[in-house]
Design a protein around this nucleic acid. Sequence first.
DNA 1: CATCGATGTTGAG
DNA 2: TCAACCTCGATGG
Length: 355
Amino acid sequence: MPEGHSVHRIANQFQASFLGQRVEVSSPQGRFAEGAKRIDGAVLVGAKAVGKQMFVEFDNGLYLHVHLGLYGSWDFAGDFSLDPTTKSANGRMGQTNQRGTDPDTDDDQAGGADGDSGPVDSAGEDSWKSIGAPRKARMMRVGKPLSAARLRMAESEKREDDIDTEAFPPDPVGAVRVRLLAPDVVADLRGPTKCEVLDASEVDAVIAKLGPDPLVDSPKKGSDRFFERVHKTKTKIGLLLMDQSVVSGIGNVYRAEMLFRARLNPHTPGNEVPEETVRALWRDWTKLLKSGVELGQMMTMDRLSKKAYAQALRSRDDRHWVYHREGLPCRVCGTNILMEEAAGRKLYWCPVCQA
DNA sequence: CATCGATGTTGAG
DNA sequence: TCAACCTCGATGG
């Protein structure tokens, strides 16, 4: 599951690929037929993320609200600009990857399977990208491939006719809950935990229940809101970081990593964490979230050598201090990393560094 | 090929 | 506290 950075990347991708375009909305799988009907044919006028929730706005005053949950993912295909890093409508960055998935786990990404395997094309090539749960990319080239794409095809074993036979839009693969189709780009959603159409007031109600998001709230307001919730409860900080009403976007990976980075014991009651530490946590989340949006991966280790950094981006196993490292020696003190279940989720930490 | 597990949330008991 | 939701890569045979 994508943590906050993935959702921001997805919203950015929608801005870059669909902004201002009339969209054909359907539910190939059928489970969202009614909702799709309400926004079908409307113009997409915006997309934004708040924590792990995404809202796509249409010109008829309605919004598509999506939460990927554990397995959800979006697949983009067609001829579009790849740039989940910024909100600009055109990305030039070539971006990265695609995947968006996230993190670590993902590895797959790491493998570059996805899309990105390479440095992607910038030109809008194609391709596709899958953002969401870790997943191998389905390499599909659709639409009229640009020269770069053709070149690649020529170098591979694929024949040109493969290109000609790939029509746009591609047929939905698997259970596609929602398909957003514009003239040159298509986005398919599968496996979401939440997919619904809301009006403006309902969107506000959802957002009102969420804690601050560094990419939505100002540094001061965000820090204040976070501190306000943390300092007056006895709930353990390890639980508070996962509570979306306390702070938005943090998931199981970022939680464990942030606690280690702050050298904080997960069991410390919120009201016993020094104010400066609480505010430092907020600043760290801000830093990690921005980094995740740019990198398309959860890189939570600092000060790595050039070589180690490159390796970390390649393998999820080298990207974190404690996450998923039960029984392995702490990278700082050598003590075996512990794992315990908390609220149904696995929490990893170093009993010495985070005493 | 069968089973497990995962970056998450909700709602029942 | 736990099952359910729902998908697919990883793992093991």
